[in-house]
Design a binder for these strands. Structure first.
Lengths: 208, 208
DNA sequence: AATATAAAATACCAGTAGGTACGATAATGA
DNA sequence: TCATTATCGTACCTACTGGTATTTTATATT
């Protein structure tokens, strides 16, 4: 890991890895990964194509790295919410709040790159696909531990943990898809209130 | 409309429109629309490229036509279930049954082409996008009339109809995505039991 | 038989994708 | 000073995309 600051031997590198990652991340997120070529990223960043390939090895490698970057940006916050020790209902509210946050003021695209990439994982190389699978099972794992903790407090319905985790993941994916299709965040939040809270804490509307 | 059987003037057409549509439909469904080129479809069907363009005008036109075809195959059955005059719970069971049907024995790919295409609608031409939007609002409309009918029988929770329709659409999309990711249909069905039934008829597990 | 019509398919177009060979360049170590 | 090392970027490669110009062929009409 101590390769950066130590003066290397040859010509010093001018290529800005983080800038490329950030630019690619935003371009993928906004336009969809399949609509952004390596050439596009070169033009956007001013980097040369061999430079990008030297740094990331291949299209597959770049996408894998972007996904890693995206994890810190948009998946970890979800995990952080799950790991705060809060009453179940408050966690659910925090999740809904995070998902339906207005993106434009933050300069962030709508939808979720992770969800988008999962939906078209067969377009990607093996390395990216592997990363996708790992991120997915990691996220599901965090859902599961949170569910178990909620259950131990008696604050979670009697649903098998594995099923409940898939259920929460599905609600998240649904919300992100709606956002991409232009459904207003307030509306998405109302849907999530019903779809997330009712099955989990029974806090939904009265039955007719 | 009486152009087919009437003997036309020039060279008789040998191009089989339906075969192309069917082949393209299956290829799109299996591999994702973005992974199937017109060339692929030509090779699969034996048709020549200008023939395909003569029939469908463009990539956009072909995709629109395929989508139309897909409607009859996989969207209309859902609408038919909604239009059967059944108790709400039976309709929900029928929907869950349809979504989690084993596809392999029927020779059908898993997932839903409509859901896939909605998720990447920005890859397509204007005509295809228009069709997608129309299909979406048509489906949502059918959900809404079914919801209203259920409400009038007192068999639907007190959820605004528009919200409930988006909710149902989201559950459908989530199920199709899980299926694509390889989640077993029995598991998906259990998730749907919770996510669909609990909010709508309160038939979920007891709260803790 | 000659002509009009329409569909057939080969062979091509420009554009772009992912990827790389290779000579130039900027630093360090001897 | 001079070799060594490593990154630089131009210019290129092949493959394939959506799309079409052009010629040939099979029919119906005259």
């Amino acid at each position: 890991m101590s390769k950066k600051s130590a003066s290397a031997r040859g010509r010093p590198k001018t290529l800005d890895r983080d800038q490329i990652l950030q630019t690619a991340l935003m371009a993928y997120w906004e336009q969809g990964p399949a609509n952004v070529s390596i050439n596009d990223i070169c033009h956007l960043t001013g980097a040369s194509k061999p430079g990008v390939y030297r740094e990331f090895e291949s299209d597959d490698g770049l996408k894998r790295s972007v996904l890693e970057q995206y994890r810190g940006l948009a998946i970890q916050p979800v995990i952080d919410i799950l790991e705060r020790d809060q009453p179940t209902l408050e966690t659910l509210d925090a999740l809904i709040g995070f998902m339906t946050q207005e993106r434009a003021p933050l300069g962030l695209p709508s939808g979720c790159l992770f969800v988008m990439m999962r939906a078209q994982s067969h377009h990607f190389g093996p390395s990216t696909r592997e990363k996708l699978t790992m991120l997915r099972s990691d996220l599901l794992g965090h859902y599961e531990t949170w569910i178990e903790r909620s259950k131990s407090r008696g604050e979670f319905a009697d649903i098998p943990t594995e099923i409940a985790a898939l259920f929460m993941d599905a609600q998240h994916g649904g919300a992100m898809r709606m956002q991409r299709e232009g459904v207003p965040n307030t509306t998405i939040a109302r849907v999530l209130e019903i779809s997330l809270k009712t099955p989990i804490v029974g806090a939904g509307p009265a039955r007719a």
